[in-house]
Amino acid sequence: MFQLGKTIVSEDIIEKDFVCNLSACGGACCVDGDAGAPLEEEEAKILEDIYPKIKPFLRKEGIAVIEKEGVWIKNEWGEIETPLINNADCAYVIFDEKNKTLCGIEEAYNSGEIDWKKPVSCHLYPIRVKDYSEFSAVNYHKWEICDDACTLGKELQVPVYKFVKQALVRKFGQNWYDELEKVAAKHLE
């Protein structure tokens, strides 16, 4: 672990390799698990505002859950997250013609309907950020459904932090990321 500004960062994000391999997993991270995507408070407000523009991109099952439970929910620990369809799929999940998982929010973004890509927690994956009062912990989340992404990352020699560069800059800023690159270069010497 090392400190970077007000973050404590796991060395795994430098040492481990990762490149999403949707053709291998089909987007399982959006349909497996027992919780929705973590949301920041500002993101919950954004979802409320843009839901009408996202709705045409969603499946009827997702729309039904969202209209019953809301565009976001609070879990048993009081944390904000996306609702789930039958305790599995994220309510914003859609499928392409090959049954590959896509994000309805991101599809609305890609179509120019909205200017917000998706929740930063999804954009950052496989990095998970846990905010504490004095700092944020930045960790690599190892999940067996992403083994193919680890294999592809190793083959292409892409460390986790480079794979999620855009999301890290979005979350922490360009200066933070520039410092991370310096730490990574020194660490890998």
Score class of each variant (00 low, 15 high):
L4W: 03
G5A: 04
I8L: 14
V9N: 06
V9R: 01
V9I: 10
V9Y: 01
S10A: 09
D12L: 14
I13D: 00
I13H: 00
K16N: 13
K16M: 10
F18T: 10
F18L: 11
V19R: 03
C20K: 07
L22W: 07
G26E: 01
G26I: 00
A28V: 14
C29Q: 03
C29P: 02
C30F: 15
D32S: 06
D32L: 03
D32I: 01
D34F: 15
A35L: 09
A35T: 14
A35H: 10
G36V: 02
G36E: 00
A37Y: 07
L39F: 05
L39N: 01
E40C: 11
A44D: 04
I46F: 03
I50L: 06
K53N: 13
K53L: 10
I54Y: 15
F57N: 08
K60F: 12
K60Y: 12
E61N: 09
G62N: 02
G62C: 03
V65T: 13
V65W: 04
V65L: 10
I66P: 00
I66Q: 00
N75E: 11
N75P: 10
G78L: 08
I80N: 05
E81L: 08
T82I: 05
N86K: 15
N87T: 07
C90M: 04
A91Y: 05
Y92D: 01
K98T: 15
K100A: 14
T101A: 13
L102R: 15
C103L: 05
I105V: 12
E107K: 08
Y109H: 10
N110C: 14
S111P: 10
G112W: 00
E113Y: 08
E113I: 11
E113D: 08
D115V: 09
D115M: 08
W116F: 05
W116A: 04
K117Y: 12
K118L: 04
V120R: 01
S121F: 01
S121Y: 01
C122W: 02
C122I: 07
C122G: 06
L124S: 02
P126G: 07
V129A: 07
V129H: 10
S133I: 15
K142Y: 15
D147C: 12
D148M: 13
A149Q: 02
C150W: 08
T151Y: 14
L152W: 15
G153S: 11
V158Q: 12
V158S: 12
V158L: 13
V158D: 05
P159G: 02
V160P: 01
V160T: 10
Y161I: 03
F163M: 13
V164Y: 00
V164A: 00
K165E: 05
Q166N: 11
A167I: 06
A167P: 05
R170M: 06
K171H: 09
F172K: 02
F172Y: 02
F172G: 00
G173V: 06
Q174S: 07
Q174E: 12
Y177T: 00
D178P: 08
E181S: 09
K182L: 06
K182R: 07
A185N: 03
K186R: 03
K186E: 04
H187T: 11
H187D: 09
E189F: 00
